[in-house]
Structures are given as structure tokens and as C-alpha cells.
């Protein structure tokens, strides 16, 4: 096999792997912001999810249970954010900042209790599996370490992320629920007069955003690597947030943006492994520079949901 094809396979493979946690979290961002609630606490929810996923997977030896608990852990912080923002009219960015402190703080607090004072978990026995692994290897359909292996033989979370992009898109644009979520994010007063329960929709959306961020965290801790540590999630939630805006608040747009950030990481790792004398730091910087340039290039910034960040007060009730 041409080494260049194999290199390409390696880059695409790592891109997919590193994009996946961002995709989950970014989808969470799409859901909450579409309902009109800013969630800058995605970072903290992801952080907590990464820990919860690794801890549960370590103790139960079941990565799937880990993934589920990560999502539920994220959803718990989503609930807190929803209580603050929806029920008590909190300043949404401030509440999000609080969630970042709380998510990370509580993850490390529990980690120290469970893992003998350490701010990292032990290595999990079983990571999220690679469901197509049986197709690759000696005497199988595809050779191992070939292009196809590198690109398509990925963790289940990768496929799940892509599937969820479709699901979120479908729900937002093709279902009753999605239409209501978007309406609440654009004009909650109008939705309210039509008997739509703005509070319930927003609670649901914010909790779901935590659920997705939790999945994103676990996609990092029990798929990309095999344990949680205190530096595992550092800014990924913020990047996912930027990707969501970059993607114009659309699931498919967020996907593309996350792949871009993932590709930069993939390229950085590839060049690092080859010892190419290109400044890796400059390369790593590129997607951020690019994001700013693209944001500047947006014409007509009306893509954000109109009611975003605004407090909805039904007044009397």
C-alpha cells in the first residue's frame, strides 16, 4: 500500500477520533441554544461526564454503563443550569461559569474519594469497543493497519456521534418537538400564547445539552484514552461551543466545525509522529485563527436564535 494513502488514513482516523467528543458536546450546545438558553457550562458538564464515565466503567467493567452514567452526570448539571436560568432568571453566562467550577470541582472531589486521593481514575479494563473490528485483520475482509482499517475501524462512539447529528437534525427540523424548541428559542412569548410550555421545553433542552456534553466527556475518557485525569478535558467544551456558533447553530454545521478542529489535532499528531520540523504549536493555533476569520466573514449575523440569552418571564404565573 502507498504510504501516502496510509498516512492519509491515519490523519482521517485521528481526526474522527478527536472530533467525536466535540461533536457530542457541540450538539448539546445546538439543542440548548436553539431553545434560547446559552450554556457556557458545557466545559464543566463535559469534565464531569469524562470522570463519571471512566469511574463507572472502571468499577462496573462495563463501558456502556460508563457512557450512560456520563450522560446522566452531564444531565444533572444541565438540570442545575436549567433551574438557575429558567426558574430563577439567572444571568445565563454567569450560571454557566458557575457550572464549570462545579462540574470540574465535584468530579475531582469524588475522584479523590474513590481513587485514593488521586485526581485521576485508574485505567478501565474495557474501553468503548470498535464494533467493526471483526472485519479487519489477518484473513479478514480488510487488512489491518490499512487505509480502511485506519478510517473505518473506529470506536462505537464515533458512529454514535454521526448518527446523533442526524437524529438531532431530524428532531429539530422534522418533528413537532423540534419545531417547538426552535419557536421557543426565537419567540418564547409567541410560543407561550399558543399554549406551548416554554419552561418545560427549556428545561428539556438544557438537560439534554448536559446529557450530550456528558457523552462527549466519556467519548474522551473511555474511548480516545482509557482513563480520566484532571487535565483530560481542558477547554474542549469551549471549543465545542465555538464550533456550534461556527456551524451557525445547526447540527450539520457544528459537525463540520468539529471535524475542522479534529483535523487540526490529527495533523498535529501526525506531523509530531513523523518528526516533521514544522512548528506544531503554530499548526495547533490555526483552527482558532481560522474560526475568528470565518466569524468575521459572516455576512448578516442573524443566524443566532432571536431570544437567546433573554430571560422569559411569564409574569403572573
Amino acid at each position: 500500500m502507498e504510504p501516502i494513502i496510509q498516512d492519509l488514513g491515519f490523519i482521517i482516523g485521528t481526526t474522527l477520533m478527536y472530533s467525536t467528543p466535540l461533536i457530542f458536546t457541540s450538539l448539546g450546545g445546538v439543542i440548548t441554544e436553539r431553545s434560547g438558553v446559552i450554556n457556557i457550562g458545557l466545559e464543566g458538564m463535559m469534565y464531569f461526564g469524562a470522570f463519571a464515565g471512566a469511574a463507572v466503567a472502571y468499577f462496573s467493567q462495563d463501558p456502556w454503563l460508563g457512557l450512560l452514567c456520563a450522560a446522566l452526570g452531564g444531565a444533572f448539571w444541565g438540570l442545575i443550569h436549567a433551574i438557575a436560568c429558567v426558574s430563577f432568571s439567572a444571568e445565563q453566562i454567569v450560571s454557566g461559569i458557575a457550572i464549570n467550577f462545579l462540574g470540574a470541582g465535584s468530579a475531582l472531589f469524588i475522584s479523590r474519594l474513590l481513587f485514593d486521593g488521586a485526581t485521576q481514575t485508574l485505567t478501565v479494563a474495557r474501553k468503548i469497543p470498535q464494533p467493526l473490528d471483526f472485519l479487519f485483520g489477518e484473513g479478514k475482509m480488510f487488512a489491518s493497519s490499512g487505509f480502511t482499517d485506519l478510517v473505518f475501524n473506529r470506536f462505537a462512539t464515533v458512529y454514535l456521534a454521526f448518527f446523533l447529528v442526524f437524529v438531532v437534525w431530524f428532531v429539530l427540523y422534522k418533528t413537532q418537538l423540534g419545531m417547538r424548541v426552535r419557536a421557543v428559542g426565537e419567540n418564547p412569548e409567541a410560543a407561550n400564547t399558543l399554549g406551548i410550555n416554554v419552561t418545560r421545553i427549556r428545561y428539556g433542552a438544557v438537560i439534554m445539552s448536559g446529557f450530550f456534553a456528558g457523552l462527549g466527556g466519556a467519548a474522551m475518557s473511555i474511548a480516545v484514552v482509557s482513563r480520566f485525569s484532571n487535565t483530560l478535558i481542558s477547554g474542549h467544551g469551549f471549543i465545542a461551543l465555538a464550533a456550534m456558533i461556527f456551524g451557525k447553530w445547526k447540527p450539520q454545521g457544528a459537525l463540520v466545525a468539529c471535524l475542522l478542529f479534529g483535523a487540526a489535532k490529527g495533523l498535529e499528531i501526525f506531523l509530531g509522529s513523523k518528526g516533521v520540523p514544522v512548528a506544531g504549536d503554530i499548526l495547533a493555533m490555526l483552527p482558532y485563527v481560522l474560526t475568528i476569520i470565518i466569524l468575521i466573514g459572516f455576512v448578516g449575523k442573524t443566524t443566532a436564535p432571536a431570544a437567546i440569552g433573554k430571560i422569559f418571564d411569564k409574569g403572573d404565573h
Binding site: 442545575i80 438557575a84 430563577f88 432568571s89 439567572a90 444571568e91 454567569v94 450560571s95 461559569i97 458557575a98 457550572i99 464549570n100 467550577f101 462545579l102 470540574a104 470541582g105 465535584s106 475531582l108 472531589f109 475522584s111 479523590r112 474519594l113 486521593g117 485526581t119
Partner: peptide
């Protein structure tokens, strides 16, 4: 951590909670 064995990160929880309440004057 050394004194009572409790995780240091309770501090982050305290700070996060303070901010959360600061965000909710209501």
C-alpha cells in the same frame, strides 16, 4: 487534604456555588 483527608476541590464547589447564587438574585 493533609489535615482531615478531605479533597481540596471542595473549594471549587464552594466557589462555584457562590457564583451560582450570585447569578440568581431572584
Amino acid at each position: 487534604q493533609d489535615a482531615v483527608g478531605a479533597p481540596t476541590e471542595v473549594i471549587n464547589i464552594v466557589v462555584g456555588t457562590i457564583i451560582l447564587f450570585v447569578a440568581m438574585p431572584k
